[in-house]
Amino acid sequence: MHDPRHPPLGGPPTPPPPPPDDGATRPAEDTAPPDAPHGAQTAGEPAPLPPFLGRPRAGTRWEVLAVVAAGGVVGASARYGAALAWPTSRGGFPWTTLSVNVIGCALIGVFLVVLQEAWKAPALVRPFAATGVLGGFTTFSTYAVDVERLIHDGKTSTAVGYLALTPLAALIAVWCAVAATDRALRGRRSAA
């Protein structure tokens, strides 16, 4: 199954469907599960498989790899710059990495909803910005190793707090970003 509104994050780019020109062309929300708004829970049967499960199309285009690499360079540079600007002392709470991850999660939520619902972007925009920039900006490995270092240094309470706060804040950030963007775009459409 493939949900046209939410294609695979890293999948080869497919041109997004043209945005509806007005509210009338938008499918009814309560009849088609794949078009259910973000946050909506359809009753009964589970909805179709999430979109990132779709099989990739044959072959990987070199330009996709190139834009993912370029985006990764941009994102990692921004993360490194943040680490230099707001360094975390040894044994201190890693606020910079936490902020980078939470901001990246919020941005991917906003970006992917805008891309699918409002912006007919060129095909390489998604792999560049979502897979490249935001994927390279956020990091799981630094989070995991920071927890290990804090425990090794005897800062157990800081480690536990950081361990729990990061996934909680990241999930809340992406959920709020998706819901708010969805609502803003719908409001704009119905006002049009």
């Binding site: 949900d3 939410h6 994050l9 890293g10 259910a36 973000h38 946050g39 909506a40 829970q41 359809t42 049967e45 589970p46 909805a47 179709p48 498989l49 999430p50 979109p51 990132f52 990764g72 994102g75 990692a76 993360r79 490194y80 680490a83 991850n101 990246g104 999660c105 941005l107 991917i108 939520g109 992917l112 979502a130 897979t131 935001l134 994927g135 390279g136 900006f137 956020t138 990091t139 799981f140 490995s141 630094t142 989070y143 990061t166 996934p167 990241a170 999930l171 950030a173 992406v174 959920w175 998706v178």
Partner: peptide
């Protein structure tokens, strides 16, 4: 910072988790 930082990701992890939860 470069390789491991860009290889791993929190944003995709969070977004995919949200999509799983939203699709039942």
């Amino acid at each position: 910072t470069g390789l491991c930082g860009a290889l791993s990701t929190y944003s995709t992890f969070s977004y995919e988790t949200l999509r799983l939860a939203e699709t039942g």
